[in-house]
């Protein structure tokens, strides 16, 4: 088996707030293989965005990594200098955010911003960088790329701007792309265009991609493998097919059946009762126990560890350990 391009091991992140310490991540572990699309799924506050930001060392000041390590192509990203990090950030790893209009600088043209990034990381001349930028813009299916190159962000629609963002994010021969809710701000017909584009480019360029999203439909259509996070912990991880066809954690199962599907009219949706805990660090036992339909006395006392159901499917639930698939 090949070595993973990214390995996150036992990552713990704390936030210091006026209301005390919040344990945002508590021992998140996963690998991303070269050239695959890896999904990070969960609801608000599960830690999915923080996980993405930590890889680029872009965490807000109030956050602190208290434990764990992040290895990218064998290098421990938490140990290298700011200067080295700068060349990896945007050079080897890039990121796309949810709202493209807030990730581009509104005062400069698309072309200016792309040009700058390409010159910085690939050491191209201005002319060559322009050529590269135009090629990338064209690769994302944008029409009339010369005009777009000279446009300001506000002159493009949301879908077009997200395409430009993708062009920028892939322009420097990156090996890892982190996409944090890349289509959440877009309309559904535009969303499907962008997803299609991301998959095409990802295959053509062979980059690995981490797709962070709350939308299970997007994950099912895009990802090879995925991890489900809940309250800062991994609850289930494995191959997409295996997880979608046979979810092995009550939370994953709950999420899947909470979505209305064609033909669900007249039936009640199976909602997960309660809310996500504000500080999961304060809970003893399994973080999902207070909302779980299958809770046992043991769940309130001990924290379950990861149980492997097959080579590439694991769940953090005592039921999975016993093998009785509820």
């Amino acid at each position: 088996m090949r070595d993973p391009i990214l390995r996150i091991e036992d990552l713990h992140i704390e936030f210091r707030t006026s209301r005390g310490v919040i344990h945002a991540l508590q021992g998140v572990t996963f690998d991303v293989m070269p050239g695959e699309i890896f999904g990070v799924v969960g609801e608000t506050g599960c830690g999915k965005t923080i996980t993405g930001l930590s890889v680029l060392r872009l965490l807000p000041r109030s956050a602190r990594i208290t434990q764990g390590n992040i290895r990218f192509e064998g290098v421990d990203l938490l140990k290298i200098s700011q200067r080295e990090m700068r060349s990896i950030r945007g050079g080897k790893i890039s990121i796309i955010f949810q709202d493209p209009s807030t990730s581009m600088n509104p005062l400069f043209t698309i072309g200016f911003q792309m040009n700058k990034v390409i010159r910085e990381h690939l050491k191209f001349s201005r002319e060559k960088a322009r050529e590269r930028a135009l090629t990338m813009l064209a690769a994302t299916g944008l029409p009339d790329v010369e005009r777009i190159y000279d446009s300001y962000p506000h002159q493009l629609s949301g879908g077009m701007l997200q395409r430009a963002m993708i062009a920028l994010a892939l322009s420097c021969e990156h090996s890892l792309l982190i996409a944090d809710e890349p289509t959440t701000a877009l309309d559904v017909t535009i969303q499907s265009q962008i997803l299609q584009l991301m998959r095409e480019l990802q295959q053509k360029l062979g980059v690995a991609m981490i797709l962070i999203t709350h939308n299970l439909g997007v994950v099912a259509n895009m990802c090879d493998r995925l991890v489900v996070l809940y309250a800062g912990r991994v609850v289930e991880i494995g191959e997409s097919r295996s997880i979608f066809e046979n979810p092995q954690h009550p939370y994953t199962r709950g999420l899947m059946s909470a979505i209305p599907a064609p033909g669900s009219r007249g039936n009640r949706l199976s909602a997960i009762p309660g809310n996500v805990p504000i500080d999961p660090g304060a809970l003893k036992g399994c973080v999902f126990a207070p909302r779980c339909a299958f809770v046992m006395p043991r769940c309130l006392k001990e924290s379950p560890v990861m149980f492997h159901l097959s080579k590439d499917h694991a769940s953090t639930c005592f039921l999975a350990e016993r093998g009785d698939l509820f």
């Binding site: 629609s157 879908g159 077009m160 309309d187 559904v188 017909t189 535009i190 969303q191 499907s192 265009q193 997803l195 299609q196 939308n215 299970l216 439909g217 997007v218 994950v219 099912a220 259509n221 997409s240 097919r241 979608f244 066809e245 899947m256 979505i259 599907a261 064609p262």
Partner: peptide
């Protein structure tokens, strides 16, 4: 039709291609 075909459903299907509409709104 296009709108319905564009929704990514949370199921792993044989046909993973989403049908897309061309062009902007």
């Amino acid at each position: 039709k296009a709108l319905l075909a564009s929704i990514p459903q949370p199921k792993i299907g044989k046909d993973k291609e989403l049908k897309t509409l061309k062009g902007q709104i």
